[in-house]
Each structure stands twice: as structure tokens, then as C-alpha cells.
Design a binder for these strands. Structure first.
Length: 873
RNA sequence: GGGCGCGUAGCUCAGUGGUAGAGCACACCCUUCACACGGGUGGGGUCGUAGGUUCAAACCCUACCGCGCCCACCA
């Protein structure tokens, strides 16, 4: 048994134990015969570094994984990284820019090679950081979404979806990001409220009979106007329907059409229609008979003005940015007095969530996935309970999103990612196939050109629960570990990732990806603000680990994780749990000094002494609480149960009680109970527990693979009530001492009056412990004959502590009166309730019985306290 | 415009139809031979507001006030 150093230094042990676990293959021992248990880690971006949100996510997963492993299961925690298309391409492009270089100086293949180079050099930062947290995942089979095998799965899925008619190419408006020059999905667009203007413009009728006023928030797009719409029932405009308008800047003749989209209440009631640059207008345009291919486009990929196909945009506007074009157009309109009104207004404006620039609706050919079809079984899976969402309030959000889902744009105009397996012949014919050879075969040997685009990163990560297990091959892992048991993710990726995993998993595996979906909240700063780099209020988990240890950080995050609500992280909490670790450490030191080491039995040792029988029962009850908390995924309750047991029960009472009496039985029980603590605490605090496990003695195996306790031992009710009584007695005496300002060093005599035989026996059995903890000189089973004693009431007995001359009668009278008054107040309120026939007749019988019993107890207590007050004189 | 969540001790949060809990902070005492990252004791809450249901509500219902988030095409 190694002597423990005086203080606990997390730094010194964390690295050593992690390396030991990993090199020893202890994260996934060979357990092919055992029941499998599976969880996949949301693959962090390969460009990422560990932030506090990861720390929470990883902690929650590791806690479950470690326990399942201790339960003896073949626990698999899949780990890997995501190629993160846009993010990674950006990083590499930025590196090039720093050297006055740029992506377009290279061929596609050359650039992609550079990305792989970057990944090899600096792509693994986050995986090192996961280790610092103690993540016990299966590194031996670490995956990457661009690995050959995984890529094969991605291609296969796309080809299959195409075959099944669930992936198709379409020309329609997409959310175009002019900064990254790629399409993005609806989910990657965030709407921000921006202060803008609402213009009312005057468009002259072509026949010279007047003008019609139209409203817009984006005057620059008028250059591609193709119609003016009015409501079919709007009396003001009915007669104009079918007439033409001469566009004030381009001179284009455009029709006035009837469409319900035009809201008579809004602005003038007439609206300009720009089908190529507005989602609503696109629909109106289609209804008005325009084909997407005919719709006018006035922007290039960077959102600068280009000539429309009818060449009607004035020369001086070409090449202008959106912003400049707006100014120029407004000036031109002002010059011809065509602006009726300008109002200030808050405009909901779409922004790219990564680029931060305004998204342009742009008419392009893209690949879409028929999400609505895939969504149906995913909705059903939750409805039927095949997937259980925790907390279940999120189910509503799940349904709401999936029921209203739009086609998913999956093509991206990037170089880094899974290239879309589609090939085009010169006649435009498209062949979708797993390989170029297959495509060529299908195309009859015609020359083919592969699609330039790559797939949305989320398209591939949606396959994570099965493609990491070897799919489409039918591997042993796949058979054993799909469906996964649980998925843990932040609710911020519920749509991006979770829902898409469910859709793809059900479509391709015929089975839900996981049985339970646990959603946790976001970590916020102590003020409740969302953490962001720009605000500078981020908490660096690695800094906290350096300062307080990984165990303390993990325990904090678990303790604060309650049913998915957001976590306001306060460093003080981490400090507090670091103190908890130190407390445990010192308890171990103390036990060690007294000859307590590793327990030699898994089952609770036989014990005679009440204190030992009691602590065994307390372990059993703590285990039950923990097991229940695990079953319900209540991390706060797990932390709470073990924290209070270790500190409030084991350290504060058991260790204090057994001080000085380390007989063989006590040593055996203390060893066993402490071992149970280490086992039960290990999922939350793996490092310190593993270290203490080793420090306490020779072990046949590491704690990480030790067995989670089974509730074999019993709670002894007798011992429980005896120790419960003892704790109350000691607490009462201590309280009286403090309130009466008795110096801690003074030892008192205790007289017990009215003690039952049982109480007398308890006093006798435990007199040494009671005397030490309550600082007593002697205990006598008789009423104190004199006056001037402090008195405390515990159950039926009244105890007197003579304080000859020391006692302050006033203080003691106050103290006793306060206690009596409190008891009487409760007694009276219970009496009142019991005198109400409505209560005794209608309330549950248990409630009535309990009220009666409580009433009796409170009456007796009040009586004893009043009697004590009398005696005081 | 829909949907969700939250408002409980100074702070951060649990909580259950039957007389309010924890941690931290605070006050007082203690250099007791594991631990001052400690020990002991204590103060502190009309459980957002107003109604309703009930024998009984902080817990259920309704409305309102305040805060936050998500979804949605009001040009």
C-alpha cells in the first residue's frame, strides 16, 4: 500500500492513468460474449478545439459509458471526427491567404491534398483534449467522415436515395451564401431583425393611363422584376389585372397579375414580383406561368449585379454590389420622382450562420433530398415510443419540425467533402452511380463529367450510427451495436444531426438509430449569457481542468445538468467539487493510516456493530439512489446522491464515529464501504477514484473495469434507527452547546431522564462515540437532580447537561421556548386539520394516519419541552 | 404569427398536491492527532401577480407580468 501524499494533485495522476487505460485497452476490453451497449460521440469538427459545450456533452456520455462498462457489458463508445466541409476549407484557405496564396491557384486535387496535409499536421487537437477530460472512448477504432470506408457508405447512400427517387436534381431558389459561394440549407440560415426601410415605388402603366404603387424592402432587386401582383379581390386594382407596367429603370414591360400573395392591407396592396430573387416571388412567378429557367437573374455568385438575359439593366449598374446597387437604384428612382414613400422598418433578414453575410435567394441547379418522405417514419418512431426523447418536452419540437420539413438541399459548391457521385453526359443526361466505371457503363461509354459539388457535411454525419460500424458491409459490430442504446446531444443540433440520423438510419437500416435520445442544454456564463468568442465570456474547459482537475469539472457539469435546461457555469462550483475530491482524498489517507486498505470482498462483510451495520445499509441506499438516477438519466441526482453520501454520511459521521475503534470488523467494513464509494463515484470522477483504488492496496484489476455493485446487502432497520437517533442526539447536544456559548473544550456530563429501555441500551452501546462527538465526560441514566442545566429532548427522553453557574438562563429559556413554540405550532396546525371532517373523510387514509401520528409526536415533544422549561425555573 | 422553457433563500438551482431543500455566499465559534480546499453551529424564502379546482396548491387549471429560446415568406 503506497502512502498517499498530503494533498491531492490532479495534474500528477490524470495523464498517467489515462495513458494506462488507453494503452491497456481498458476502454474496450474483449467482451464479445457480453451484452453489447453502444453510444456514438457526436463527431467534433476536425478543426475544432474543446469548448465547454463539448466538455458537458462528453462528460455526460462518459459517465454512462463507464457505468455500463462496470456493469460488465461490452460497452462501445464510438469516437471520431467530422471533416466539416466549410469550416475546414476555410481554415486551409485562410492559411493560404496568410502566405499571399489562394485556393484558386491550385487544381482541385492539389487543394484537397493540402487539406489532408493540414489534417495530418493539426487536425487532431480536439482528440487530445477529449483525453484530458477522461473520455473512455474506443480510440482503437477512431473514425473520420472522409475515411475510405465511411466515404463508401456516403456514396452508397446517395446512389440508393437517387434510385429510390428520394434524391433528385432541381432548379429552384436556394439560400446562396455569396461569401462562401455555395448553397446552404434552410437550417444554416439564421434570421436576424435588421433596421431597414420600406419603399413605396410608383410604376407607370404601359398604356400611359397612370401608375401603380408597389412596395419593397429591397429596391435593387427591381432590376429583375417580372410582374406586379395584386390581390384578385382587391377592388382598387381589379380593373388593372392583365394590364402591363413599364418598369421605371429597365423599361421592361411586365404584367399586373392577380395573386393571393398580395396582401391588400400591406403598403399599397400591390407588390413587385422578382421570381429569381425572392422565395415568395418565385412561387408567385410560377403561378403566373413563368418557368424557373426563364426567371430573370441579376446577380453573380458574389451578389454583384450582372446583366439579365433581356439585357435591359442600364450599363452603369453592372458590377455593383448589392449595397451599391441599392443606392444607385434609389438615386435613379429619385431622379424620376418614382419614390412615393420611404418608411423605417425592422426587416427580418437571412444571414449565413457561418459566414455572417446576408443570404441571397439565387436560382441554381442543386441536389435535393426528399426529406418529407424520410421524415414520416422518424415521426412515427417517436410517436410509437421506439425512440424515447428525454426530456420528453422536445418531442413536440421534433414533430413540429419534421412535419413541416422542406426539401433538403444537400449539394455544396466546395472542394472539401464527399463529391457527389453523379456524372453528366454532354447532352445533359445524368448518371448517378457508385463509381465512374458504373456511370460510364450506364451511359454507354459516352464521355462523362463528374458533378463538381460535394455533399453537405450533415449528409454524411447522419450516417454516423451505422457507417462507423462498417456499413454497408454486414460486420459483426454492426449486428451487435446497431441500434445504439442512447444518443446524447445538445438540442442545438436536434435538426441538423439527430433528426437526420433518425431519417437515414430508419431508411437504410430499417431500424431506429438509438432507443433513447437525451438532449442537454447549453452552457452559459455565470450571468446566463450565451458564451461566444466575440463576447469574450467563454470558459475554457482546459483551463478549468488545469486549475481544478478533470474530475472536478466533470462532477460540476454533471451536477448542474438537470433535465436539459441550460447550465450557468460558475467557477465557484468547480472549486467546490475540487474541494470534494480533496475531502475524499483525505478520508482515504485517514483510513490508510488506520490500517484500512483494499477490501478483500465484493459482498458486504458480516458485521455486528450497529455503526457498521448502519453504514452498510447507507451504501445500499446510496446505490439504489444512483441506479435510479442512472435509469432516469438524472445526472444532478447522481451527483447529489454520491456527494451527500461521501461527505455528509461517510466522512461527517461514519469516519468520526469509528475514530479510535479500528477493530477487525470495522476495518473490514470501512474497507468495503470505501471501495463501494470508489466504484460508485468512478463514472463521475474517474481519475481520483482510480488512483485511490490503486493506493488502497493490491488489486486484481483496475477500477475502470471493476464491477458495479449489486444491491445484495440489506438495510438493517434497527441499526438505521439507532444511528439516526445517535445523530440527532449528538446534533441536539452540539446545538445546545453552541447556543449557550459553552466553550468547545469544556466536557459536560449528560443525564438522561425518561429514557426507554431501548434508549438506555443505545446509550450504553454507543456511549464512547456519543461522548467523543458531543464532548461529554459521563453519561448517566438518571434525571439531573439540580437546576441550572441545559436540556434537550430527543424522542421520549429528556437529556440534561449541567452547566453549574455557566448557564445563561435567559438564553436557555429562549432556546427551549423557541423549540416548544415551533412544536406547538405544528401540533396545532395538525390538530386543526384533523378536526376538519372534510379532511378525515376525504383525504387518503395514509395521509390521515400520518397526520395523527405526527400530531401525537409533536404534542409529546411540545409537552417535554414545556416541562423542561418548568424545570429550569 | 405559432411553439417551448423559465420566474423557489443574496447567488446558482433541486423539489413534491399534505406544514419549503441543496451548494455557494453570509454570521458566530474552533490551530480536536485525515482534511482550513477543514470542523461545529446559526440566520435567511408571503415558492412572479391575480383568480380558479381541491378537505388541502409552491406543486393542477386560467389569465396576466417579466425573461430566454426555437420555428414561420408579411413584400
Amino acid at each position: 500500500m503506497a502512502d498517499l501524499p498530503k494533498t491531492f494533485e490532479p495534474r500528477a495522476i490524470e495523464e498517467r492513468w489515462y495513458a494506462h487505460w488507453e494503452s491497456g485497452g481498458l476502454f474496450r476490453p474483449e467482451r464479445g460474449e457480453q451484452e453489447p451497449w453502444t453510444i456514438v460521440m457526436p463527431p467534433p469538427n476536425v478543426t475544432g478545439s474543446l469548448h465547454i459545450g463539448h466538455a458537458l456533452d462528453i462528460t455526460l456520455q462518459d459517465v454512462l459509458t463507464r457505468r455500463e462498462r462496470m456493469l460488465g457489458k461490452d460497452a462501445l463508445w464510438v469516437v471520431g471526427t467530422d471533416h466539416a466541409g466549410i469550416a475546414t476549407q476555410m481554415v486551409v484557405e485562410r492559411n493560404l491567404e496568410e502566405r499571399q496564396d489562394k485556393r484558386t491557384n491550385y487544381s482541385r486535387d492539389q487543394f484537397v491534398a493540402k487539406v489532408w496535409e493540414w489534417k495530418a499536421e493539426s487536425g487532431g487537437a480536439i482528440t487530445r483534449q477529449l483525453r484530458r477530460l477522461g473520455a473512455s472512448c474506443d480510440w482503437a477504432h477512431e473514425r473520420f467522415t472522409m475515411d475510405e470506408g465511411f466515404s463508401k457508405a456516403v456514396t452508397h447512400v446517395f446512389v440508393e436515395l437517387h434510385k429510390r427517387g428520394l434524391a433528385y436534381r432541381d432548379k429552384r431558389l436556394v439560400n446562396w451564401d455569396p461569401k462562401f459561394q455555395t448553397a446552404i440549407s434552410d437550417l444554416e440560415v439564421e434570421t436576424r431583425e435588421v433596421q431597414g426601410k420600406f419603399w413605396t415605388l410608383s410604376y407607370p402603366l404601359a398604356d400611359g393611363s397612370g401608375a401603380i404603387q408597389v412596395a419593397t424592402t429591397r429596391p435593387e432587386t427591381m432590376l429583375a422584376d417580372m410582374a406586379v401582383a395584386v390581390h384578385p379581390e382587391d377592388e382598387r386594382y381589379k380593373s388593372l389585372i392583365g394590364k402591363q407596367v413599364k418598369h421605371p429603370i429597365t423599361g421592361r414591360l411586365i404584367p399586373i397579375v392577380a395573386d393571393e400573395h398580395a396582401d391588400p392591407q400591406l403598403g399599397s396592396g400591390a407588390v413587385k414580383i422578382t421570381p429569381g430573387h425572392d422565395f415568395d416571388d418565385f412561387e408567385v412567378g410560377k403561378r403566373a406561368g413563368f418557368k424557373p429557367a426563364e426567371m430573370l437573374n441579376m446577380f453573380d455568385a458574389t451578389a454583384h449585379v450582372v446583366q439579365t438575359s433581356d439585357s435591359l439593366i442600364p450599363e452603369q449598374l453592372l458590377g455593383l454590389s448589392r449595397e451599391d446597387a441599392r443606392k444607385a437604384v434609389v438615386e435613379l428612382l429619385e431622379a424620376q420622382d418614382a419614390i412615393e414613400r420611404v418608411e423605417d422598418r425592422v426587416i427580418p433578414t437571412p444571414y449565413g450562420d457561418r459566414s455572417g453575410v446576408v443570404i441571397e435567394p439565387w436560382l441554381t441547379d442543386q441536389w435535393y433530398v426528399d426529406a418529407a418522405k424520410l421524415a414520416k417514419p422518424a415521426i412515427e418512431a417517436v410517436k410509437s415510443g421506439k425512440i424515447k426523447i428525454v426530456p420528453e418536452t422536445w418531442a413536440k419540437t421534433w414533430f413540429n419540425w419534421l412535419e413541416n420539413i422542406q426539401p433538403w438541399c444537400v449539394s455544396r459548391q466546395l472542394w472539401w467533402g464527399h463529391r457527389i457521385p453523379a456524372w453528366y453526359a454532354e447532352d445533359g443526361h445524368v448518371f448517378v452511380a457508385e463509381t465512374e466505371e458504373d456511370a460510364r457503363a450506364e451511359g454507354g461509354g459516352k464521355p462523362l463529367r463528374q458533378d463538381e459539388d460535394v455533399l453537405d457535411t450533415w449528409f454524411s454525419s447522419a450516417l454516423w450510427p451505422f457507417a462507423t460500424l462498417g456499413w454497408p458491409d454486414e460486420t459483426e459490430d454492426l449486428k451487435r451495436h446497431y441500434p445504439n442504446d442512447v444518443l446524447i446531444s445538445g438540442f442545438d443540433i436536434l435538426f441538423f444531426w439527430d433528426a437526420r440520423m433518425a431519417m437515414q438510419g430508419i431508411e437504410f437500416m430499417g431500424e431506429v438509430p438509438w432507443r433513447t435520445l437525451y438532449l442537454h442544454g447549453l452552457v452559459r456564463d455565470a450571468q446566463g449569457q450565451k458564451m461566444s468568442k466575440s463576447k469574450g465570456n467563454t470558459v475554457d474547459p482546459l483551463g478549468l481542468i488545469d486549475k481544478y482537475g478533470a474530475d472536478a469539472l466533470r462532477f460540476t457539469l454533471a451536477a448542474m445538468e438537470s433535465q436539459g435546461r441550460d447550465i450557468k457555469l460558475d467557477e465557484k462550483r468547480v472549486e467546490g467539487y475540487r474541494n470534494f475530491a480533496t475531502k475524499l482524498w483525505n478520508a482515504a489517507r485517514f483510513l490508510q493510516m488506520n490500517g484500512v486498505g483494499a477490501s478483500d470482498s465484493i459482498a458486504a462483510p458480516a458485521a455486528e456493530l450497529p455503526v457498521n451495520r448502519w453504514i452498510i445499509g447507507e451504501v445500499v441506499e446510496t446505490l439504489a439512489k444512483l441506479d435510479a438516477a442512472f435509469d432516469e438519466l438524472r445526472y444532478d441526482e447522481m451527483a447529489d446522491a454520491i456527494y451527500h453520501f461521501v461527505w455528509g454520511t461517510f466522512c461527517d459521521w461514519y469516519v468520526e464515529l469509528i475514530k479510535g475503534t479500528f477493530d477487525e470488523e470495522t476495518k473490514a467494513v470501512a474497507s468495503w464501504a470505501f471501495d463501494q464509494i470508489l466504484v460508485m463515484l468512478h463514472p463521475l470522477m474517474p481519475f481520483i477514484t482510480e488512483d485511490l483504488w490503486a493506493a488502497m492496496g493490491e488489486r486484481p484489476y483496475e477500477l475502470i473495469v471493476a464491477r458495479w455493485p449489486e444491491p445484495e446487502a440489506q438495510v438493517d432497520p434497527q441499526a438505521k434507527s439507532e444511528l439516526d437517533w445517535l445523530v440527532r442526539l449528538v446534533s441536539e447536544v452540539r446545538s445546545a452547546r453552541t447556543e449557550l456559548n459553552v466553550p468547545p473544550s469544556a466536557k459536560l456530563n449528560l443525564f438522561a431522564a425518561d429514557a426507554s429501555e431501548e434508549t438506555a441500551a443505545c446509550l450504553d452501546r454507543n456511549h464512547a462515540m456519543i461522548s467523543r462527538l458531543a464532548r461529554l465526560d459521563s453519561i448517566q441514566l438518571s434525571a439531573f437532580p439540580g437546576t441550572g442545566a441545559a436540556q434537550v429532548v430527543v424522542d421520549e427522553a429528556t437529556f440534561a447537561l449541567p452547566l453549574e453557574g455557566v448557564i445563561d438562563f435567559e438564553s436557555e429559556r429562549d432556546r427551549l421556548s423557541k423549540g416548544a413554540a415551533a412544536a406547538e405550532k405544528e401540533r396545532d396546525s395538525l390538530a386543526q386539520r384533523l378536526s376538519n371532517p372534510n379532511f378525515t373523510e376525504r383525504a387518503k387514509p395514509e395521509a390521515v394516519d400520518k397526520a395523527r401520528a405526527d400530531h401525537e409526536a409533536k404534542s409529546a415533544e411540545a409537552g417535554r419541552l414545556r416541562a423542561a422549561l418548568e424545570r429550569l425555573g
